[in-house]
Design a protein around this nucleic acid. Structure first.
Length: 607
RNA sequence: GCACCAGUAGCUCAGCCGGAUAGAGCAGUCGCCUUCUAAGCGAUAGGCCGAGGGUUCGAGUCCUUCCUGGUGCACCA
């Protein structure tokens, strides 16, 4: 356990010695106050024990057994403050294991889920990056993670695109990316509806039926594979593609409805405006609704979309089986991508899909209402299994230079375009700053894509993002390049150390001072940040942490003593101190790289 | 109308379970490369944390009323 955790336990012990119990919080001491960690625990006890908090702090101090790593404690008014023992603290941090233990629980993250009928645009970018980062964070927190990408291959949009190809008699000639080409036909068809609505409606409707029978799977696959190259370029990968047509054929809907019919709140309406339809009364869970009835199956026998969603969610929870799977692709990392399929194996390569302990659906905030209904359906089952573990990660829209994104008005921007532009702009900067870099294109990609991802992740999901080139691709300030640069700087020092034959052996930890402690304290926060970010599904906490570490490291690097001379140099430090600092810088590098990796951002060694 | 989300520096945003003097970046001003990467660092300036009431030893954080902005409330997907 880390020093902070041990300190907390020691404090809890001291509180028990006073004959009571309390939640103990330990936090970093504000700038300018005595000590490194502090606790306001005496405040809470004051009321309970009917004593002055200052006196309680003193009492705790007398009963406190200091854990290793803490040099001394003092009472600052009602606060208890602790001074770290620099040597043991820094040494302990530098040698602490980086990985978190497995929890033995499984999490499903569903993200991307772009309609397979056109190229993905910046609105989708936020979904992909957010979901991908969440998956990485959950994995780091010890979950077994399954990333799903839902393919709505029976929807109207897919049908329109596919029908447009034959309607206009076009053939794909490979001169542009397939999804872009198809997207243009989709837009063209929308315009053609104004003059030829009837023919188009008939054609689209027929195409939808063929899609449901799975006859056009190959057509969907073509778009899907083109879209996947976009996601791969962003660094996102998946475990499983879940096709809606497979869901429909698998009988999930019927199974889900069977489960639900056992509830008193699901019934066939016999009167009112929903007569003849199968409805669900959600009023017990969503009080105050004007219309507490939700239609699951229309009176004409057709299921509503939300009913399919319910079926899929029941499957994720593990309420029933029925899908078959096969391999679909080998992703850039070498990881196999599986897909649901009409013919296949329920357990390909011995794997079991679904059956998750936590389910995170990354879907924009406008779909909060249907998502709540899906969750409510889980509450209506006998065991309510999956209700507490179903989470909607709701994110707000991305506007484009202040305008709402709209395919119809042409206010749209493809991810492919943005990624190209990001790489181009990053390349120009890299070339200017470091022209003799051998791997300039690789670095430009890492920096450009990193900047883009960071821009999508640095603030909370529920905040509206206005996409602006200038800000998204900013290579300074609160950005990925700032963090990447800090990482490259650490790498540079470690390279120089290696060339000089300086390693970590022979480190004299007694030489560690306040500057090292402050930096180490920041580095020590990583596991806690991962845990909170995983619990809250909040990648922005990790992004903020990246900035904090980079800032602490840059501050250390540039530090000067009272006379204005650098006093934190590594290689020019005396033997003993030098080796200890090499170890600390190595840990800085690892921490920055690990934190960036949680966001799916690469950390170049030079830039 | 009802519900959900947001309102913190000129702009864009952090602020973990309520804790010590509310923090960054951008924009502004002034400094720092003969020293391991200046994509950096330091300093300075900038705040009725939307408004009122309440709970608390302590509120940007919790409760409540209101104001402003966004979104959602179909036998659509």
């Amino acid at each position: 356990m880390d020093v902070k955790g041990r300190l907390k336990e020691a404090l809890e012990e001291a509180v028990r010695a006073l004959g009571t119990e309390a939640e103990v919080s330990v936090q970093a001491v504000p700038e300018g106050k005595a000590g490194d960690y502090g606790s306001p625990v005496a405040f809470g006890l004051a009321k309970k024990l009917r004593q002055n908090p200052v006196a309680i702090a003193k009492g705790l101090l007398e009963r406190l057994e200091l854990p290793p790593g803490i040099a001394r404690a003092e009472a600052v008014g009602p606060y208890l403050n602790f001074h770290l023992d620099p040597g043991p603290f820094v040494e302990g941090l530098v040698t602490a294991p980086a990985a978190r233990p497995e929890r033995g629980e499984k999490a499903i993250v569903e993200h991307t889920s772009v309609n397979p009928n056109k190229e993905a645009h910046v609105g989708h970018l936020r979904n992909i990056v957010l979901g991908d980062a969440c998956a990485r964070i959950l994995k780091a927190a010890g979950y077994a993670v399954e990333v799903q990408n839902y393919i709505d291959d029976t929807g109207r949009q897919a049908a329109e695109s596919i029908f447009a190809v034959s309607y206009f008699g076009e053939t794909y000639d490979g001169s542009e990316k397939y999804d872009h080409w198809l997207g243009k036909l989709y837009v063209r068809l929308g315009q053609a509806k104004e003059t030829d609505a009837e023919t188009i409606e008939r054609g689209v409707s027929e195409t939808m039926h063929r899609l449901e029978r799975g006859e056009l799977r190959g057509e969907i696959e073509k778009v899907l594979r083109a879209q996947l190259t976009t996601y791969y370029a962003l660094g996102a990968e998946y475990d499983l593609l879940v096709w809606e047509s497979d869901i429909v054929r698998s009988g999930f809907l019927a199974q889900a409805l069977n489960v639900l019919r056992g509830s008193d709140d699901v019934f066939e309406a016999t009167e009112g405006k929903y007569a003849g339809a199968l409805v669900m009364d959600v009023s017990k869970f969503l009080p105050g609704l004007e219309e507490p009835l939700v239609v699951l199956v229309r009176s004409d026998g057709n299921a509503m979309y939300v009913a399919k969603d319910i079926g899929t969610q029941f499957w994720k929870v593990g309420l029933f089986e029925g899908l078959k799977f096969t391999t679909f692709d080998t992703q850039p990392s070498g990881k196999t991508l599986y897909t649901s399929a009409p013919e296949g194996d329920p357990h390909p390569d011995g794997l079991t899909f679904a059956h998750a302990d936590e389910i995170i659906n990354v879907i924009d905030a406008r779909q909060s209402h249907p998502q709540t209904i899906v969750r409510t359906a889980l509450a209506l089952t006998d065991t309510a299994q999956g209700f507490d573990s179903s989470h909607h990660l709701a994110y707000e829209v991305v506007t484009l230079e202040g305008q709402a994104m709209s395919g119809r008005k042409g206010v749209t921007l493809a991810i492919d375009t943005v990624v190209d532009e990001a790489k181009k702009r990053a390349r120009a900067v890299v070339a200017e700053k470091n022209s003799d870099l051998p791997s300039i294109d690789t670095v430009a990609r890492q920096v450009g894509v990193g900047a883009l991802r960071f821009a999508m992740l640095k603030s909370e999901a529920r905040r509206v993002i206005d996409f602006r080139w200038e800000q998204a691709l900013s290579l300074q300030g609160d950005s990925a390049p700032y963090v990447q640069y800090a990482h490259a700087r650490a790498c540079s020092i470690l390279r120089a150390a290696q060339n000089a034959g300086v390693g970590e052996a022979g480190a004299d930890w007694s030489r560690m001072g306040g500057l090292e402690v402050k930096l180490a304290q920041e580095l020590a926060r990583l596991p806690e940040v991962v845990d909170i970010a995983a619990r809250e599904f909040a990648p922005h906490l990790v992004a903020q942490y990246c900035l904090d570490v980079a800032t602490a490291w840059n501050g250390f690097y540039n530090h000067r003593d009272a006379s204005g001379k650098p006093d934190t140099q590594v290689l020019k430090a005396e033997p003993g101190l030098r080796e200890a600092r090499v170890a600390l810088v190595r840990r800085v590098r690892e921490t920055l790289a690990a934190a960036l990796a949680l966001l799916g951002i690469e950390a170049p060694e030079e830039m």
